[in-house]
Write a protein that binds this DNA or RNA. Structure first.
Length: 338
DNA sequence: AAGAGAGTCAACCGCCTAGAT
DNA sequence: GATCTAGGCGGTTGACTCTCT
């Protein structure tokens, strides 16, 4: 048999928390901690609440360093970039914004930011899909891109340029140097934007393509759990169901350096589910189920990608154009730009 | 001043995964 | 291996507040 029952739901209070309940919960946790058991906590703290409710109240409202009030422009940018990149994974987005909760960000997005972006976008771009549907066998190149990458269900990558194409399993190292002759080419993965280094054929990660903010690296792990190496660098960061993995190829660690020229020859992977260990050396596709993305959600993500793109052109929100990633069921598209 | 509609946000709901039994 | 719960997550709800007419 499993564990004991959760809580007596008939004998549990619902609705808004009173100041007395808040102080009881706060005092108890500050004194004894959660003990890793939210279900037992309300009884010990003298609260007639469900453990889940206590957990939510603590995490979203009572815990220290919670930020309330207006979101800054920088926070807007982070939310936009990450939403365009990973969709409505609010807990992951919240991990990048210290003091903000996933609930806060979700509410802010749904009530304000989404509308703000919609208002900024030109009418002609509001519902036009940026890319054709995924079931096309020959993905056409957007007119503004030099090179596109598609990942198929077998894990291999196909690369298309104006007049060349090839396939490989490694999304970074197998790009022919002939396609990399222009130093201005950049590309984005699920998590990071890369740009070429001085060494031919090698790319270094950076967050933003936009020149004004290109030195602002997206450093994962601000509040997420992180397994540290002996030198204090971080090689694995977890965000709930997601883990960002860094495979250090013998150069400096992303987390312990400042200049992107040091990051050459590293691979980055986004894995889904379990602990990601078995997924090393794979670029794991997002599963179809339980992603929270209904077709309309998918449309929204695409819309936002486009809106961010158009907004950056207007210097309203300087998110980068290169976060236009087509997350569909069987293919992953990575765009290259001049 | 009052009613209607829109906006906000805390809290709940239901689902999923990991882990305990 | 099957069954069950805890914890965590995203979506939704509904009470409250604000704004408009």
């Amino acid at each position: 048999m499993g564990r004991a029952p959760c809580c007596d739901k008939a004998n549990v209070k619902k609705g808004p928390w009173s100041p007395e309940e808040d102080s009881k919960l706060k005092e108890y946790i500050e004194k004894y901690g959660t003990g890793g058991n939210w279900i037992a906590l309300p009884q010990k703290a003298g609260l007639k609440r469900c453990g889940k409710s206590c957990r939510l109240r603590w995490l979203n409202y009572l815990r220290p360093n919670i930020k309330h009030g207006e979101f800054s422009d920088e926070e807007d940018r982070v939310i936009c970039s990450l939403f365009a990149n990973i969709g409505s994974r609010w807990s992951i987005i919240a991990a990048q914004l210290p003091g903000r909760t996933d609930n806060d960000i979700k509410n802010y997005w749904n009530t304000k930011l989404k509308k703000k972006l919609m208002a900024m976008a030109p009418q002609s771009q509001r519902k036009t899909p940026p890319f054709p549907s995924s079931d096309q066998t020959d993905p056409p190149l957007p007119s503004h891109s030099l090179l596109s990458i598609y990942k198929d269900s077998g894990g291999s990558f196909s690369y298309y340029s104006q007049n060349k194409s090839f396939t490989g399993f490694d999304p970074i190292s197998q790009i022919p140097s002939s396609l990399l002759s222009n130093n201005n080419v950049s590309f984005a993965t699920n998590s990071l934007l890369f740009q070429p280094t001085s060494q031919e054929g090698l790319f270094s990660p950076m967050q933003y393509y936009h020149p004004a903010v290109k030195d602002n690296f997206l450093v994962f792990g601000s509040e997420a759990s992180c397994s540290s190496n002996s030198d204090g660098s971080c090689s694995q960061i977890s965000y709930g169901r997601y883990e960002i993995k860094q495979e250090d190829m013998g150069f400096h660690s992303l987390m312990s350096n400042n200049g992107y020229e040091n990051y050459q020859n590293q691979k980055f992977m986004l894995s889904y589910g379990n602990h990601g260990v078995e997924n090393l050396n794979q670029w794991v596709e997002k599963p179809n189920g339980n992603t929270g993305e209904t077709p309309s959600d998918y449309d929204l993500v695409e819309d936002v990608k486009q809106l961010i793109s158009s907004s950056s052109n207007n210097n309203i929100i300087p998110c980068n154009d290169s976060l236009l990633i087509d997350e569909n069921k069987t293919q992953e598209k990575v765009m290259y730009y001049y």
